[in-house]
């Protein structure tokens, strides 16, 4: 795969005088799986907001390959190949599970094109493959509103897969999941990574360990420490602000 790297360099976001991000810098290599941890309010979600165009940075550079993301809006960044799973799962309750995936499927987006669009056989196969992958094969025709919390999280991940993004941003995928569901999700994410870059924000350290990847620790809007899970767990500053509590 070609693959583009994500550069975040010196990014600051200020909300009414409050620095949610403070000179944040990191690089995600093509195909890399990266975990981001940090205490509540560290700015992890805000970091994703900046990358996906929801929030414009007050200062700094955000680049995907050589494209400047700070100049683009959400739909353009999404079509560029950056997908996002939200902390609070947001699927379309009034549509079926299948239709949710179909909406996310990498295909036409404009109004008239959508009106004329027909689902091709191989696209149907792809949706069904993703349904199997997220363990919802039996639920395709059910309304998404009827799913359990864990199933909604998976549907969101499934929607990410349908977009075939180069870079996935996944915000707290296992919050509120049972141990078994968590295990399943870790396996799913590990399988996805390698073909694409994935950034996972998570509080659950067991889960992060299972991901077996480089970890970035954020605190008060900047990077506090970076390295293997063992490295950051033994970093004195990390222990002080986060793990030690």
């Amino acid at each position: 795969m070609s693959g583009r790297a994500l550069y975040v360099d010196g990014v600051s976001v200020v909300f009414d005088g409050f620095r949610a991000l403070n000179n944040l810098s990191f690089i995600i290599e093509p195909g890399e799986l990266r975990a981001v941890i940090g205490p509540n309010g560290a700015g992890k979600t805000t970091m994703m907001d900046v990358i996906t165009g929801k929030t414009k940075p007050t200062a700094g550079i955000v680049k995907f390959g050589d494209v400047d993301l700070t100049r683009l809006d959400e739909p353009r960044i999404a079509t560029l190949g950056i997908g996002r799973k939200f902390q609070k799962p947001t699927v379309f309750d009034a549509l079926t599970v299948f239709e949710n995936l179909e909406l996310a499927l990498k295909a036409v987006r404009g109004p008239i094109a959508c009106w004329k669009w027909k689902l091709a056989a191989e696209q149907r196969d792809r949706i069904e493959a993703v349904l199997r992958e997220i363990g919802l094969s039996e639920r395709g025709q059910d309304l998404a509103g009827l799913l359990s919390h864990g199933q909604r999280q998976w549907l969101e991940i499934g929607m990410l897969l349908m977009q075939e993004p180069e870079l996935l941003l996944v915000d707290e995928p296992v919050a509120g999941m049972t141990d078994q569901e968590t295990e399943h999700t870790a396996a799913l994410l590990a399988r996805i990574a390698g073909q694409r870059s994935v950034v996972v924000v998570e509080h659950d350290l067991e889960f992060v360990r299972a991901l077996n990847c480089k970890v970035t620790v954020m605190c008060e809007g900047s990077v506090l420490s970076e390295g293997s899970i063992d490295h950051v767990q033994n970093d004195a500053r990390v222990i002080e602000v986060y793990l030690g509590r």
């Binding site: 929801k54 739909p75 379309f92 996310a104 987006r109």
Partner: peptide, 11 residues
């Protein structure tokens, strides 16, 4: 969920 749809690439 208009905001969500925008993150799926719909303008």
């Amino acid at each position: 969920g208009e905001a969500r749809l925008r993150f799926l690439g719909y303008d």
